[in-house]
């Protein structure tokens, strides 16, 4: 069970697409920084629908996205303490 750490926008970098090529169904994804913007796009929401996703609350609030992110059961909004916990709950972290 791996935590995949994406920290760039899907429009600038294919880190997330590459991650999705190799991801296992049980893995999770942390969409940090501009990576989280893809959640505003329905096509990306669908591509990511089967994975457990984490998003940092500071990243969301910094971007004024609190009311705009989809209310979806697979998305967990976390703080940095929970980010640390998530790294320990997974066997390793891959930063793409």
């Amino acid at each position: 069970m791996i935590l995949h750490h994406i920290q760039s926008s899907v429009t600038a970098d294919n880190a997330l697409s590459t991650c999705l090529r190799y991801i296992d169904a049980q893995d999770s994804i942390l969409l940090a920084d501009d990576a989280l913007n893809c959640l505003l796009n329905t096509q990306w929401q669908q591509r990511l629908a089967d994975f457990k996703l984490y998003v940092l609350i500071e990243d969301i609030e910094a971007r004024g996205l609190s009311e705009r992110l989809p209310q979806s059961a697979n998305i967990s909004i976390i703080d940095y303490d929970q980010f640390v916990l998530a790294t320990l709950q997974h066997t390793k972290v891959i930063t793409w």
Binding site: Q7, A32, D33, L56, Y80, D81, V84
Partner: peptide
Amino acid sequence: STASFRALRFTESVLSLGH
């Protein structure tokens, strides 16, 4: 880039949680 800032915030949390 915000990578270093996020690394700093993460490191602060690691330490505050006693790791």
